[in-house]
Amino acid sequence: MNELPLVLVLAAGLNSCIGNILLKWSRTSMPADAGLLDKFLSVGFIGGLAFYGINIILFAKALDSMEVSIAYPILAGSGFAMLAAASYYIFGEPFHLHKWIGLALVLAGVVFLARGS
């Protein structure tokens, strides 16, 4: 079995995670009274858009040989898992028991979907 589509989907999930982190950073690093143009031309916002774009390219390539009904849940689940951990370490967002349980369920679903392909 060719593992490249799964690797592409996971790489797309990583790019989605990075894009979300940059988007959040762009919002928290700007002064509250920053203008609209400043907010949308910030390094974090533009960087987030770039990583979202890479996400789409990688995901589209994975769909060449992978079912979308399998690929998308893996993309979303892996992106969520990476984002939950990254937001805890980078922004100090809380990571309580309910998030651990939810993360475990998401990861279990990703494993089942990946093995089902």
Score class of each variant (00 low, 15 high):
residue 1 M to T: 08
residue 2 N to I: 00
residue 2 N to Y: 00
residue 2 N to M: 03
residue 3 E to F: 09
residue 3 E to N: 10
residue 4 L to S: 05
residue 4 L to H: 04
residue 4 L to C: 01
residue 6 L to I: 05
residue 7 V to H: 05
residue 8 L to R: 07
residue 9 V to I: 00
residue 12 A to C: 00
residue 12 A to F: 01
residue 13 G to F: 01
residue 14 L to P: 00
residue 14 L to V: 03
residue 15 N to Q: 11
residue 16 S to M: 12
residue 18 I to P: 01
residue 19 G to T: 00
residue 19 G to V: 00
residue 19 G to F: 01
residue 20 N to F: 02
residue 22 L to C: 07
residue 23 L to C: 07
residue 24 K to W: 01
residue 24 K to Q: 07
residue 25 W to T: 09
residue 25 W to F: 12
residue 26 S to T: 05
residue 28 T to I: 14
residue 28 T to H: 08
residue 28 T to N: 08
residue 28 T to S: 12
residue 28 T to Q: 10
residue 29 S to I: 04
residue 29 S to W: 06
residue 30 M to P: 02
residue 31 P to N: 08
residue 32 A to F: 06
residue 32 A to Q: 14
residue 33 D to S: 11
residue 34 A to W: 04
residue 36 L to P: 09
residue 37 L to F: 12
residue 38 D to R: 09
residue 39 K to W: 06
residue 40 F to N: 08
residue 41 L to D: 05
residue 41 L to I: 08
residue 41 L to H: 10
residue 42 S to G: 02
residue 43 V to C: 08
residue 45 F to C: 05
residue 46 I to D: 11
residue 46 I to F: 11
residue 47 G to Q: 01
residue 48 G to V: 03
residue 50 A to G: 10
residue 50 A to I: 13
residue 51 F to W: 13
residue 51 F to K: 05
residue 52 Y to K: 06
residue 53 G to Q: 10
residue 53 G to Y: 09
residue 54 I to Q: 08
residue 56 I to C: 09
residue 57 I to W: 13
residue 57 I to S: 10
residue 58 L to S: 05
residue 59 F to H: 06
residue 59 F to P: 04
residue 59 F to G: 02
residue 59 F to V: 00
residue 59 F to N: 01
residue 61 K to F: 13
residue 61 K to G: 03
residue 62 A to G: 04
residue 63 L to G: 03
residue 63 L to W: 04
residue 66 M to W: 04
residue 67 E to V: 06
residue 68 V to C: 05
residue 68 V to K: 04
residue 71 A to P: 07
residue 71 A to K: 08
residue 71 A to Y: 05
residue 72 Y to P: 00
residue 72 Y to D: 01
residue 73 P to Y: 00
residue 73 P to F: 02
residue 73 P to T: 03
residue 74 I to D: 00
residue 74 I to P: 01
residue 76 A to F: 02
residue 76 A to I: 13
residue 79 G to Q: 06
residue 80 F to M: 14
residue 80 F to R: 05
residue 80 F to Q: 11
residue 81 A to E: 01
residue 82 M to N: 06
residue 82 M to C: 09
residue 82 M to Y: 12
residue 83 L to E: 04
residue 84 A to G: 02
residue 85 A to R: 04
residue 87 S to M: 13
residue 87 S to A: 14
residue 88 Y to M: 15
residue 88 Y to S: 14
residue 88 Y to V: 14
residue 89 Y to S: 13
residue 91 F to W: 10
residue 91 F to Y: 11
residue 92 G to H: 07
residue 93 E to P: 07
residue 95 F to V: 12
residue 96 H to Q: 15
residue 96 H to T: 15
residue 97 L to G: 09
residue 97 L to F: 14
residue 98 H to D: 15
residue 98 H to T: 15
residue 99 K to E: 15
residue 99 K to V: 15
residue 100 W to H: 13
residue 100 W to C: 14
residue 100 W to F: 12
residue 101 I to W: 04
residue 101 I to Q: 09
residue 102 G to I: 05
residue 102 G to T: 05
residue 103 L to A: 08
residue 103 L to E: 09
residue 103 L to N: 07
residue 103 L to Y: 02
residue 104 A to W: 02
residue 105 L to C: 12
residue 105 L to Y: 03
residue 105 L to K: 05
residue 106 V to Y: 03
residue 106 V to H: 03
residue 111 V to D: 06
residue 112 F to K: 11
residue 114 A to M: 07
residue 114 A to Q: 10
residue 115 R to G: 04
residue 115 R to V: 11
residue 115 R to Q: 14
residue 116 G to F: 14
